[in-house]
Amino acid sequence: MLTVDFGRLPVGPGDRVLDLGAGGGRHAFEVLRRGADVVAFDMNADELAGVADMFAAMDKAGEVPEGATGETVVGDALDMPFPDGEFSKVIASEVLEHIPDDMAAMRELYRVLKPGGMAAITVPSFLPERICWALSEDYHTAPGGHIRIYTLAELSAKLKSTGFRVGPHHHAHGLHAPYWWIKCAVGVNNDEHPLAKAYHQILVWDIMKRPPATRIAEAVLNPFIGKSVVLYVRKPG
C-alpha cells in the first residue's frame, strides 16, 4: 500500500533515494523495483532486518533491475550518517508526527538532499487524525505514537522555513480512515472485535484485488477523509 505517488516523485536508474523512517519498507521496495538505488533508514533494527531479507528475495526472484541496489541503515533521523547532498530523492512517510523535534528532522532531510532534489513528505491528515485522538487516548499516548496533529498550513510553513520550495499535495487512503475510527472506538489493540475485523478484511481485499468500485470510492473520499496528506517539495539548486 503506497502513500507516495511516484508519478509526482519519479524515481529510476541514476537516482539515489532515501526512505526515511522506512518501517516495513513498502516504499523502499517500490523504489528498488523502479531501478533506483535505495537506502531504507530507520531506528528499528528488527524491522530493517525484514526489509533486508525482502531486498534479497526480490533480487533472487528477478524483481530488481540491473544495477539497482537496496541497503538498510539503522540510525536517528536527527543525526543521519550521510554526507550533505547524498540523495536525489527523499521519502519521509508517516514519520514526522512521531519526532518531538520535527524541525531538526526537516533540517537533516534538507541537508542530505542534493540541490535540486525532490522529497515527498506524508503525515496523517488533520481531520481523520483529530477524530482518532478524540475517540481514543491510547491511540496517541502509546510509546512511539503520534505526538502532534499537523494542519497542511503548519507542515507547509515548517518546510518553507527549512528552505524547501513547497509544491503540490494530495490526500491518500480515504478508505482507511473509518477503519481507524472503528479501532479507536472499540480499542486500538482489539483486533478481534467483529466490526474491526470485518473492515480489516475489506481493506486487505481492496489492497490485493484493487477492484474498480473501491478505487473509485477512495478517489472520491480522499479529498475529504484521506488518512494521509502527501506534500511534494524541492530543495533549491
Rank of each mutant, 00 (worst) to 15 (best):
A177E: 06
G62R: 09
G35S: 09
P83R: 15
G75K: 05
A185P: 02
G24K: 10
A142R: 14
P212G: 03
K209Y: 12
A104W: 05
Y199Q: 13
A120P: 02
D191M: 14
V204S: 14
A217V: 05
G12Y: 13
L152S: 11
P65A: 14
E192I: 05
V39F: 01
A45L: 08
W181I: 02
H146P: 03
P83T: 13
K209S: 08
R234S: 08
Y110C: 14
G7K: 03
L231D: 06
D19N: 02
T141L: 08
A28Q: 02
F224D: 09
W133T: 00
G67A: 06
A213D: 05
A172N: 07
G7R: 10
D42M: 09
A134Q: 14
D138I: 06
P128G: 09
A40L: 10
G117K: 04
R34M: 13
V233N: 05
H146R: 04
Y150P: 06
K160V: 13
S228W: 08
E66F: 11
F164N: 09
L113V: 12
H140A: 12
F29D: 00
F6C: 04
L32P: 00
G25Y: 02
E154Q: 15
A120N: 08
G163E: 07
A196H: 12
I149N: 13
V4N: 01
E97G: 02
S125P: 01
D59K: 13
S93L: 10
E86H: 15
T151W: 14
C184P: 00
W180I: 10
S136K: 01
L2G: 01
A157D: 15
V186Q: 01
M54S: 10
K60S: 14
R130Y: 15
